[in-house]
Nucleic acid binder design. Structure first.
Length: 921
RNA sequence: AGAAGCGUAGCUCAGCGGCAAGAGCGUCUGUCUUACAAACAGAGGGCCGUGGGUUCGAGUCCCACCGCUUCUACCA
């Protein structure tokens, strides 16, 4: 059998996924035992426009680890895949593509455009699915869903109508975040605040009656007067000059002054009390505006006087409502100045208008000061455009009544969020939740199921027929012409139903009964509010039960420098490049191993390399077995490990015990979502225990041509350990393990459905005894290395142990000690007498002497031993200090005290032996 | 401005109340020892951010401070 020395992932990876998929190994029905526990996960549906990024690679890998593990354990596993129609993102992609063909979306019309989107989806929408197959995601493709599927769209309608009927959905005119680029309202969550360097402009508004101001004259010297006024401690925005009295407001958006309808100050601000009842004249416009008092205004900020633009600022909007102000909309949905502003500004873009306004104010002598100012500006998450707060008629979902149960479910532990710290973020958000603007002025999405009568009455209904019924029940003419709503719903409105809409809700399907609630949701932290919290609310509302028992938040993948990946920084790593370069299994292993308790994960090249090396190690260990155990493999019989051919040796008992340990650790770690511990345990067990020690120890038996019972037994054991190891590794490294497992004698069709190891008791005695052996071999190797003894040179050694156990281990393992430490003659003696010219050392109770006459600088050797002695001395000092503390003896656990005593005795013994050795030199 | 998290070996991180503080990578020294040089064997490297406190005992728990990161809110 020809097996390459190096593992070539590309040779292997392409082979298995089609095999798994065509045989439906990932369908829950594969598990036919009716009593098998059910394990369900729904995939966070990626955007249909999307492609896998590093975060997905991590997210999918962890889910797949869980799915494969549970499936092998015998659970009925459903991991349900699907994609999200991603309203804005998809509409943007298709619009752009059409534009490239010279087609304007608007010319095409709504219906045709939507057709184009579906066409686009059919052709290029499958990228994610293809990539998921590369990663190895063991999802049930037969249950794949899309948020715009008929079934899911029905669920959306159903939910909308029910919420409306309950009074939780309302339509109204409010201030929303408007994206001028996308021409739609967006929710608060879709606005990203970014720090931007700007300015703050101080503008003087003449106070009526105290000046002859009409809005067009020029004032001189105001800036100097203002500067003089604010030189001292007592700052004020009330400027009294021979030309009249002025109030000075400070703003970051001077162009909005065109829509000002008041100037506000804090009711407790005595500086401005005299302004009550007066009005100001709005420069450039000439409108008389009133002074109002409102607690929202901070006395300390700026001048303590705020210009109020109720139609273009959320706070001003609130003040406008409170004080019954006029709402003058001077900025349009296109972010241009409207006809409500003086003629010269009309039609200007908001930033051009800003320049014009600033220039005109300056010319009027009313611009008193400009300061540099860095503040946060809301940007549209999708288009990147600066959001314009606008008053607009939209649909809203009232959140407080829904949020309360979702908050409770986490507080009382019905849903557990891991890591724990994230649940605080979740709770905090729900406690301060605001109503959600769910309508979008887009074409691609779920139409809001509402109709309007000619007089503007709103009828919310699942379809037109139902709308007419509802008209009738409201004693209205059922034949009234109805105009359907044209707004669609926020994408997240449908995704929030995902855990049950994908299972068939509102129909009471078998799947829904069987698989809801799901067990785990593995997701990223950036969609906790967008998605997780809302799913909690909807699951509780419509299913009466939490949508998932556990939410595991996977880390944010950073670049190797610990920086967030972003297109603008140019540090985005394509996971497929990584998978291609290091191999899928290695990349998956590295991601799992890096999934520690932290919320971020910097992807180190070195981690990937070491994972690739690990895959190679697995490959070569199997290669060794395949090359040497041909006679056993030819049988292709099920492994009969249960039938012993000979008494197991210390090494056999030890490796079995280590396997039990690793098995227990992996199962426990995965149960508790400690992915890195599962990976680390497997790495250490396979490499350090199995390869470095067990395979080495097996060589004399395995490579022997003689078909003795003992040799056969070792071969069977090594195959057994290897088979169990591959099974343990499979959830993390599916391809290489399937490939290699298929070459071993096995019982099933695929390792995917092979029985996952369960742990039996450890053999602690074997582990302790083995430690004596490995300790002794390591010491002998250390001596060789310290004195530069070439491997080709054989040396002799004497050992003497005081304990019976050690003596037995040495006797039983002497051949192996000689082989692994390259010892020619190993003399086992009762005591080692003073021997000049020998290098001496001690491990546990075993004394070692290696005669190296003439090869050794004994001054150096003395220093080496004294180094050890110093270390041991320090330890003993600590132990003695502890043991002489009466409080320690009295209060510490008895086993801790006993352990300290035992260790102290051992250290004392070793110190004595080392001292004797040094004395003898 | 609030909230959370993190500061442990050159780098990336484990360890979170008690064995002599670990791993991977990097470094140094040997070695192609019949699976693997993507390997093997050995070695060096740490006032566990700073200062207090709790405890018989503290990287490990509490408080303060310093530094970094993230989230939420936002002041015109």
């Amino acid at each position: 059998m020809e097996i390459p020395k190096q593992y070539e992932p590309k040779e292997v990876e392409g082979r298995w996924y089609p095999e798994w998929e065509t045989n439906h190994y990932f369908a829950p029905e594969t598990q036919t035992n009716p009593d098998a526990p059910v394990f369900t996960m729904v995939i966070p549906p990626p955007n249909v426009t999307g492609f896998l990024h590093m975060g997905h690679a991590l997210n999918h890998t962890l889910q797949d680890v869980l799915a494969r593990w549970r499936r092998m354990k015998g659970d009925r596993v459903l991991w349900l895949p699907g994609t999200d129609h991603a309203g804005i993102a998809t509409q943007m992609v298709v619009t752009r593509q059409l534009a490239e063909q010279g087609i304007d979306r608007r010319d095409l019309g709504r219906e045709k455009f939507i057709e184009k989107v579906w066409e686009w989806k059919a052709v290029s929408g499958g990228t994610i699915q293809r990539q998921m197959r590369i990663v190895g995601d063991s999802v049930d493709w037969q249950r794949e869903r899309f948020t715009m599927d008929d079934g899911l769209s029905n669920a959306v309608k159903e939910v909308f109508v029910r919420l409306y009927d309950e009074g939780l959905i309302y339509r109204g005119e409010y201030m929303v975040n408007w994206s001028p680029g996308l021409q739609t309202a967006i929710s608060d969550l879709e606005v990203e605040m970014k720090a931007v360097k700007g300015s703050i402009w101080h503008i003087a508004y003449p106070v009526s009656g105290n000046s002859t101001a009409s809005g067009s004259e020029h004032f001189a010297g105001l800036a100097e007067a203002y500067a003089a006024l604010n030189e001292g401690e007592a700052k004020s925005g009330l400027l009294k000059t021979p030309q009249g009295t002025f109030v000075v407001v400070a703003t970051t958006r001077p162009e909005t002054m065109l829509g000002d309808t008041a100037v506000a100050f804090n009711p407790e601000d005595e500086r401005y009390a005299e302004l009550i009842g007066k009005t100001a004249v709005l420069p450039l416009v000439g409108r008389k505006i009133q002074f109002i008092q409102d607690a929202i205004v901070e006395k300390e900020f700026g001048t303590g006087l705020v210009k109020v633009t109720p139609a273009h600022d959320p706070n001003d909007f609130a003040m406008g409502k409170r004080h019954n102000l006029e709402f003058v909309q001077v900025i349009s949905k296109e972010a241009k100045i409207t006809d409500a502003a003086p003629e010269k500004y009309r039609g200007l873009d908001r930033y051009e208008a800003r320049k014009a306004v600033v220039k005109d104010l300056e010319e009027a002598g009313l611009l008193l000061k400009i300061e540099d100012y860095t503040h946060n500006i809301g940007q549209c998450q999708r288009s990147g455009q600066v959001v314009e707060p606008l008053i607009s008629t939209q649909w809203f979902l009232q959140m407080k009544p829904l949020a309360e149960p979702a908050l409770q479910a986490v507080l009382d532990g019905r849903t557990k969020i891991i890591p724990e710290s994230v649940s605080k973020i979740y709770c905090n958000w729900l406690e301060n939740i605001q109503d959600w603007c769910v309508s979008r002025q887009l074409w691609w999405g779920h139409l809001i199921p509402a109709y309007y009568t000619p007089d503007g009455t709103i009828i919310v209904a699942r379809d037109e027929a139902e709308a007419r019924e509802r008209l009738l029940s409201q004693k209205l003419d059922p034949n009234t012409p109805l105009t359907p709503e044209t707004d669609v719903l926020d994408t997240w409105f449908s995704s929030q139903l995902w855990p049950f809409s994908t299972l068939g809700w509102p129909e009471e399907t078998e799947d829904l009964k069987k698989y809801y609630p799901t067990d785990v949701l593995v997701t990223a932290q950036d969609i906790i509010f967008f998605w997780v919290a809302r799913m909690m609310m909807m699951g509780l509302k419509f299913m009466g039960e939490v949508p998932f028992r556990t939410v595991y938040i996977n880390a944010l993948v950073l670049d190797p420098q610990g920086q967030k990946m972003s297109k603008t920084k140019g540090n985005v790593i394509d996971p497929l490049d990584v998978f291609d370069k290091y191999g899928t299994d290695a990349a998956r292993f590295a991601l799992t191993a890096a999934s520690t308790t932290g919320l971020t994960l910097a992807l180190q090249e070195s981690k990937l390399e070491s994972a690739r090396n690990f895959a190679n190690k697995i490959w070569n260990a199997t290669r060794f077995v395949l090359m040497n155990c041909g006679d056993i493999l030819e049988d292709q019989e099920p492994l009969a490990w249960e039938t012993e051919l000979s008494e197991p040796s210390l090494a056999d008992r030890w490796i079995l015990s280590r396997l039990q340990y690793a098995t227990a650790e992996v199962n426990l770690a995965l149960t508790e979502y400690r992915f890195h511990e599962a990976a680390a345990t497997l790495y250490q067990f396979f490499w350090n225990d199995f390869c470095d020690w067990y395979i080495e120890l097996s060589k004399p038996f395995v490579t022997s041509a003689e078909a003795s019972d003992e040799n056969k037994a070792v071969k069977r054991r090594i195959i057994y350990i290897l088979e169990r190891s591959l099974s343990l590794l499979h959830p993390l490294m599916p391809y290489i393990t399937e490939e290699l497992w298929q070459r071993l004698p096995h019982r099933g069709k695929t390792i995917c459905l092979n029985e996952f190891p369960t742990a039996a008791a450890r053999d602690e005695q074997a582990e302790r005894e083995m430690e004596l052996f490995t300790g002794l071999v390591s010491k002998l190797r250390n001596i060789r290395s310290t004195f530069n003894i070439a491997p080709s040179i054989s040396i002799n050694a004497k050992v003497a142990a005081t304990e019976a156990t050690s003596q037995a281990v040495i006797a039983a393992m002497s051949a192996q000690i000689k082989r692994l430490a390259r010892i020619e003659t190993l003399e086992i003696v009762e005591t080692i007498e003073t021997q000049k010219g020998s290098v001496r050392d001690v491990v546990s109770d075993i004394e070692i002497a290696v005669p190296l006459e003439g090869l050794v600088d004994f001054e150096k050797e003395k220093a080496r031993l004294e180094g050890t002695l110093t270390k041991l001395g320090k330890e003993l000092e600590g132990l003695q200090k502890r043991l002489s503390n009466a409080d320690f003896i009295a209060r510490a656990a008895t086993e801790v005290v006993a352990e300290s005593r035992g260790r102290a005795a051992e250290v004392e013994d070793q110190i004595a032996k080392l001292n004797a050795m040094i004395a003898a030199m």
